[in-house]
């Protein structure tokens, strides 16, 4: 498959008209038609049905469209974000991201920012909230995306971005699979894997004690991927923000009674003047459609 074939096909999906699609793609119509026929050969089925007055997507075309959109979108994300990280040193914009924020959540923002501001280079720094705060104070970070359970001191400027629910993660086949949501009390007796970098780490201990939940802690790790891999291996369950899972196949259910939420915010230092690059990024963060957990 080639990128231009997918682009042409998606243009026809948008316009349902070969002439307009070829205009939109700036190619001749025979070239567009040939490319789509080639794509159909490669995918092993007809994507479009051409009738005299209208062009329709076949059932197969409808099936393939979202997948082709995904691959093309990710192609752009993989390339643009790579370019945006070209110069790690003396980048005009340095951004901190809390390590428990799922990486894929920021890629969309970075890709969009890169597209809108191709000239601005950004560096990413991953860390726990305390470290990010220190780097902010020292001026080594311009801004940070993070959460803090007890709220940050007044010396920081905090703008909420999205709210995220904590869920319980477990392997396929676990008894929780049959529940729509898991009550805290239902977790009693389970083996437990502790995410050490969770900014709510110390709170979980208090929370479990307050709710009289008896868990057997089997392992703790600073690495989100290890914890999730251990959960998949059937070694225990963990509590994790809804958008953080990176390991395929991991099952989750909302944790209820009581619910636990975190609020992820944009954190900057008040009074510090933003460079044009930082100001542009702050605007982009505010405009980005952050998705919150469903209530």
């Amino acid at each position: 498959m080639e990128m231009h074939q997918i682009r042409y096909f998606l243009a026809v999906c948008d316009t349902l008209n070969f002439t307009r699609a070829s205009e939109a793609c700036n190619v001749t119509q025979p070239a567009l038609t040939r490319a789509i026929q080639k794509l159909e050969e490669e995918l092993g089925g007809l994507l479009l049905r051409r009738e005299r007055s209208r062009t329709h997507l076949t059932e197969f075309g409808q099936l393939m469209k979202p997948h082709l959109e995904d691959v093309l979108r990710n192609t752009q994300a993989a390339t643009t974000t790579a370019k945006s990280l070209l110069k790690l040193e003396d980048a005009p914009l340095s951004l901190g991201v809390m390590c428990t924020v799922g990486p894929l959540r920021c890629v969309g923002l970075l890709a969009q920012f890169r597209k809108d501001h191709p000239g601005i280079e950004a560096s990413l720094h991953e860390g726990v909230p305390m470290e990010l705060c220190r780097l902010l104070i020292e001026g080594k970070l311009d801004l940070a995306i993070m959460a803090q359970p007890k709220g940050l001191e007044e010396s920081y400027a905090v703008e909420p971005l999205y709210r995220e629910r904590f869920v319980v993660a477990f392997p396929p086949g676990h008894r929780f699979e049959r529940m729509n949501a898991v009550k805290t009390v239902d977790c009693g007796g389970e083996s437990y894997l502790m995410r050490m970098n969770c900014e709510y780490g110390s709170h979980w201990d208090e929370y479990l004690a307050a709710n009289k939940i008896d868990l057997r802690e089997v392992y703790r790790s600073e690495r989100e991927d290890w914890i999730q891999t251990m959960v998949m291996a059937g070694m225990g369950i963990c509590f994790i923000p809804e958008f953080s899972p990176v390991v395929a196949g991991l099952h989750t259910r909302p944790l209820i009674e009581p619910d636990v939420w975190r609020e992820v915010s944009l954190v900057t230092m008040p009074g510090r003047r933003f460079s044009p690059a930082v100001a542009a990024f702050v605007r982009a963060v505010r405009q980005y459609r952050w998705q919150s957990s469903a209530v």
Partner: peptide, 18 residues
């Protein structure tokens, strides 16, 4: 290579037949 995005740019991606 999530969703084969880089494979597509190298031109090596294809759909497995039924």
């Amino acid at each position: 290579d999530v969703d084969g995005a880089v494979g597509l740019q190298f031109g090596v991606l294809f759909r497995a037949p039924d």
